[in-house]
Design a protein around this nucleic acid. Sequence first.
DNA 1: TAGCAACCGGACGACCTTCTCCGGTTACCG
DNA 2: CGGTAACCGGAGAAGGTCGTCCGGTTGCTA
Lengths: 235, 235
Amino acid sequence: MAATESVRAGGRGLRADALRNRQRLVAAARQIFEEQGLDAPLDEVAERAGVGAGTLYRRFPTRAELVEAAFEDELRRVTAIAEEALRCEDPWTGFSTYVERLCGAMAADRGLSDLFTVRLPNSQVASALCDRQSAALAKLVRRAQEAGALRADFVPEDVFLFLLANAGVAQVTRCAAPHAWRRLVAFLLASCGPDHTEPLPAAPTPLQTERALLGNAETKGLGSCPGEGAGPNRA
Amino acid sequence: MAATESVRAGGRGLRADALRNRQRLVAAARQIFEEQGLDAPLDEVAERAGVGAGTLYRRFPTRAELVEAAFEDELRRVTAIAEEALRCEDPWTGFSTYVERLCGAMAADRGLSDLFTVRLPNSQVASALCDRQSAALAKLVRRAQEAGALRADFVPEDVFLFLLANAGVAQVTRCAAPHAWRRLVAFLLASCGPDHTEPLPAAPTPLQTERALLGNAETKGLGSCPGEGAGPNRA
DNA sequence: TAGCAACCGGACGACCTTCTCCGGTTACCG
DNA sequence: CGGTAACCGGAGAAGGTCGTCCGGTTGCTA
């Protein structure tokens, strides 16, 4: 059982060829997801990895597990963005570079973009990173507000709104106008200054945010409830 | 031949039962597209219309034709928004209500939202409306800028960016937080004032905008080139 | 009202994606 | 070096959507 655990968490304890194939699969998935989004055909992943479909499904029984493995590093890198931003001296620079870098990462990677509009079900790694990210973000916002650089009615969930907006632009313009998202983000950041007095409509609550993410998990072929009616096809 | 023309443009000249079924199909498509987006299964449209699949495909050989018929009225209504906004006395109010109403219409209707991220191929109706819309928008922007209410570096294509951003938010939050888009639009409008001096990154050019729209037509099952490799399935 | 042409709709074949099964192969350990 | 257990990967079933075909039906017209 301890062996089984270690197998699932990263591939240690696998036979040499199995481990090699696992790594190939993760690398291929990383590429395919980046290009096509999280709902890309899994057969294509297997093919690019030079591996049979059976091997893929044995190693990663669900799409969610493959996604988690493929984005483990990338998620860690994204989390680091928040913490680097916190180390920035100027509170406004910290906040704005955080938003910019996050949006940039999402614009460059369709899979990552999908990941931020979906709560990965049953992923402890993702949840932990998400919590760290939230904590850092809250500090980032509070600090900028205390410095008088960020409007007082800004809430951390607004960054979530910004990310969704950015994803919407990036998804359509990625090929034809790869820098369009930059202009959107510039608009958004320009509206975050302290000198805006018009009241804003209510922000989504954390509960609403959570539910929005969960609701979209099904769309991408990531079932939300693991044991739930696992029909062979949900495309 | 003249008869054939009139058949295609609205259904005049059809037998009574055929016309009735056509209307049912359009109404059903309107509902389904609103709920599920433009890539909804067509069989479902036929079912809701109480009609066989054969009837649907005979009347509307391609998805694009059905989409065009289903959204003809709605598109006309959307175009009216721009012209109403032009009749508004205050230039800023005209501009901002235009953006708000447009975004609101898209947030309420997934199909309409899709329509704005896709250039409907070979649709004269849509193209004509789009041209009218563009003309009205250009006036709206110029007028607001001349009144000093809108930042000078704003270009009409920015509204396109806003729409994409709004669509991104609406798509994810539609169920869980149906008013989230309002807050995003408020942020965006707040960044449009004349007192923003930070330079913006370059806007997408009209050509890039066009190509972004065309590129997405395939995603929604609307082939861009009519005669092109019409494999029976592209889902 | 009768005959014909147009229309209806279910059934069907093609294609795609997901996921499983099993015979052949290969790595590991003694 | 040999036996065994784990692994590989192709074949294929299940389920879904698209688009077509054809026998039966129905509206229109004379």
